[in-house]
Nucleic acid binder design. Structure first.
Lengths: 207, 207
DNA sequence: TAGATTGTTAATCGATTAACAATC
DNA sequence: TAGATTGTTAATCGATTAACAATC
């Protein structure tokens, strides 16, 4: 399948979670306006996204929830499940481990890293914490292909270099330090302070 | 000043941090291509943003760093500084408090809330944690106008209702539960699982 | 049938980028 | 002057929304 638009991919992730939720409530089918309502978006947008992934529903019953969940899984997940490392075991790193631990996701955090000896060689929510120095070694051994960076900003460039060198394919950078990586590595950046300052701006300037 | 585009506001927050950084390094002026390089964006984008906020530089020296920092402050911050509450003192809530504690930001987290008696009536990084039940009371007393929600998803709608009722003006929802609020309240949502699944998708489908 | 719904194209909106005149 | 840079308009790209034919 040709690459989907950025925003559609984001929504697919959200559709899937909502659909799983509906499934546990005993629902088997759903109309575009119902799914739209759950996510606070428009029904057209839902139908267009569904069109883009090549699925279709029926006029009488809407979409089959199980079929859609499976299809979204085929699009987002790999058969083996992707293997992830968290670098930086502060509160944010722990939050990620905790979140993914709860969900029955195909994404698996299989290792974490830190420099603080109070944190290394311990296990948090089933995830072992190694010393930074062993990054390359463990990434290869555990076949990790995605890294989440939640370290202090100063060390981010070195961490990224090491991750890339170790052969990682995707990086999620949650620090305020902008990063650049080779083209073949997918990079997603998110900055918590910026998100908060954005709220502050629009609160200040709301009509 | 008329409302700026969403993305420009986000970048202003990032410009400011980079500029502060440069200032501590003893730099007083900066060219658009230098600033662009720091953020890994294009010089045109920098210049266009600067145009939109009504600032201008000089051909010889580029932009005056101090002036730009001050101007961005005037745009984003309020004179008194905005007062923020964190609802949910899990790892993510703590991460926010910790982050803002470090930075000399005008944004101040002045209270946090939780239900767990192990957490309430304690102070974390200078921020006192109250019981949920006192939300409305404390929001009014402390003149809080922004709330960051980092609770488990199930309770999010009630929390949001209470925040709105108490007269809050902006909400930053970091849970995977989509929210809708009255028009006069600014809402920003961010979902960590979605950001990770997006990376997973693009890693899987990279060429 | 009438009404509700899907699927899809065309129009619109918002953000980025290309192009270039002006200037030191 | 030649070269580097800013400021700004127009063109392009990407995402959302409006409009509507098809169908049960």
């Amino acid at each position: 399948m040709k690459n989907l638009p950025d925003k559609t991919v984001e929504r697919l992730s959200q559709y899937r979670r909502s659909l799983n939720n509906q499934l546990t409530k005993g629902k088997t089918n759903i109309f575009s306006h119902e799914l739209a309502h759950l996510l606070h978006i428009t029904p057209v947008q839902v139908r267009r996204d569904i069109m883009l992934i090549g699925y279709s529903g029926t006029l009488r019953k809407g979409y089959d929830i199980k079929e859609m969940i499976n299809l979204i899984g085929k699009i987002i997940d790999t058969d083996e499940g992707q293997r992830i490392a968290v670098i930086g075991m502060g509160n944010l790193g722990k939050a990620f481990i905790h979140y993914l631990h709860e969900k029955g996701s195909k994404l698996k955090i299989v290792a974490s890293f830190d420099v603080n000896p109070d944190k290394t060689d311990k296990t948090y929510a089933g995830v072992h914490c190694y010393h930074f120095d062993r990054l390359a070694e463990i990434v290869k051994k555990e076949e990790i292909n995605i890294g989440i960076i939640t370290t202090p900003p100063e060390v981010v460039p070195q961490i990224a270099d090491k991750l890339v060198e170790a052969g990682i394919n995707g990086i999620l950078n949650y620090t305020p330090k902008p990063l650049s990586v080779p083209d073949e590595v997918y990079l997603e950046e998110y900055d918590m302070i910026t998100s908060l300052e954005k709220v502050a701006y629009f609160v200040k300037h709301r009509d």
